[in-house]
Design a binder for these strands. Sequence first.
DNA 1: CTCCTTTATGTTTTTTGGTATATAACGGAA
DNA 2: TTCCGTTATATACCAAAAAACATAAAGGAG
Lengths: 132, 132
Amino acid sequence: MTYETKKGAKSDTARFFWRGRLWLEGPEGTFLGYGRVVLLERIRDSGSISAAARSMEMSYKHAWDLLDSMNRQAGCKLVETCRGGKAGGGARLTPAGMKAVALFKHYHARFKELLAELDNGLNLLGWDKGSE
Amino acid sequence: MTYETKKGAKSDTARFFWRGRLWLEGPEGTFLGYGRVVLLERIRDSGSISAAARSMEMSYKHAWDLLDSMNRQAGCKLVETCRGGKAGGGARLTPAGMKAVALFKHYHARFKELLAELDNGLNLLGWDKGSE
DNA sequence: CTCCTTTATGTTTTTTGGTATATAACGGAA
DNA sequence: TTCCGTTATATACCAAAAAACATAAAGGAG
């Protein structure tokens, strides 16, 4: 999953295209969103919160706050950590964390599908290809 | 179209639910989004930019900036205005503006459909109804 | 005991997306 | 000609979000 914060490559014949955001929300606000799930994946792959945050050009504190929010809302830890030792410490996804990533990606894929589908119909309605 | 900035009523048996945003993007950034289209609708219904802005608790300037952005990006005016006169002035949607509203609402309806659909499958995957 | 790197957490600073405020132009009605 | 409410536009201000910075604690290795 690449970490797209801006639009990707697009046909330059079309002036406009659909974009969107999808997230899972709970009583405390956002539970899982795109950036949060990328963070989880990076932690899974690097074994470190700080490395994951660095790779996303995100401050450690911000990453930690997001994880804290996710762990609290999930009711169980999605990421478990340890401090000290040879490598200084580390972090890894719990089974619940893995599940969260899979769940979001599954639903997000359907969302991306819809965006692509909407884009396909768009040029039929004028306003595209300078038809106005 | 109600102007929902926060979640609406939801079944309180489900802990989480899907939310999202959809917008039409162009080279200059957002062209049409939810708030922008509500603004257009309010202008259509009230005949006034300032009345529309007031009804959304939005500053006139912010509303005007949004309209300016939309008019410029569309290549033609979505809203036409006049100053002075008995009522002080006014604004109304052009045919292109009407079309923009209809277009967005059409696509947004499909988006809302998807969100509802995603919510329906959600409780099957654990993490809901306290099953974890 | 001292490094090292990371987790954990608080405080300060900056950025940013808006509101608030001010001012001018407009043009019909009184 | 003076009002009025609106469009149009610039500038000042503010508050929430994010970043930047600071500091402590952990624990294995040397």
